[in-house]
Design a protein around this nucleic acid. Structure first.
Ligand SMILES: [Mn+2]
Ligand SMILES: [Mn+2]
Ligand SMILES: [Zn+2]
Ligand SMILES: [Zn+2]
Lengths: 124, 124
DNA sequence: TTCTTATGTGCAACTTAGTCGCATTTTATA
DNA sequence: TATAAAATGCGACTAAGTTGCACATAAGAA
């Protein structure tokens, strides 16, 4: 699925900014925040946020808050949980954990916080 | 355990601001953000944040980020997960779910996001 | 290919959470 | 009551995110 196909499928205009932005999210397979992305793009931050919102509306991108008061964005694949390390601030996609359900609730997102494998090792 | 005892136990000075702040967190048994608290207190926001940080260092208070880019604070009891509703933005403390562990990681915090019982009902 | 228009973009101004340095006040203790 | 360490208020600052508006551009019609 190319970026052009994704945009066309959702009936969005294919602009320079959108191609650039989706290209970056597609190329990195980890969640990125505005700070990570801004140095890689030319568009104004208003354009960044307006496009990101549109991508989220259209379920092209999803996002979550981290520890650092920043929102992180990634291409939406299948839903999966994230682990945020309190020590090194790394964010990991947990794509292989078994599903959790809470009676009566609909869960769309799970964020675990704590100490990642790497940092746990160094602590010893 | 009174507020005075808690402060004394951690060797902190018992100031007017600290008594006020802990009193509010103690009285509400739900997580509160600065916006919730500011109308109830007299202290400057710098004092608020400095004290909250100290309380977190001393494990009197714990906190997490919500959907709204605000950090929510609560008195630290036993560790428990939280559910944040994407529809009504309510935050619920999940004190009765069975523990989850991820091989190799230390989990200190779990945040579920999705649709709460109430909002799920209304959807139907 | 050119025209038309809805849509997208850049810019500047704004809001709000949170941080920091510094002068002044308050607490705990002797 | 005197003292010193710690806490506070204030003002300035940073950075994420939002909004209104004038101008630019993508996409479809002619
Ligand atoms: Mn992910
Ligand atoms: Mn709680
Ligand atoms: Zn780590
Ligand atoms: Zn709800």
């Amino acid at each position: 699925m190319t970026i052009e196909n994704i945009i066309e499928e959702k009936n969005l205009k294919l602009t320079v900014a959108r191609r650039e932005l989706l290209g970056i999210l597609h190329a990195h397979n980890r969640p990125l925040c505005f700070e990570d992305i801004k140095e890689k793009i030319n568009m104004d931050k208003a354009t960044f946020y307006r496009n990101i919102s549109k991508f989220e509306e259209e379920a092209i991108v999803n996002s979550f808050e981290s520890n650092d008061k920043k929102r992180y964005y990634e291409m939406q694949e299948f839903p999966h949980a994230h682990f945020i390390c309190n020590t090194c601030n790394a964010i990991e996609c947990l794509k292989n954990i078994e599903p959790i359900n809470l009676e009566g609730y609909i869960i769309t997102d799970i964020i675990f916080k704590g100490i990642c494998k790497g940092c746990k090792h160094e602590e010893e």
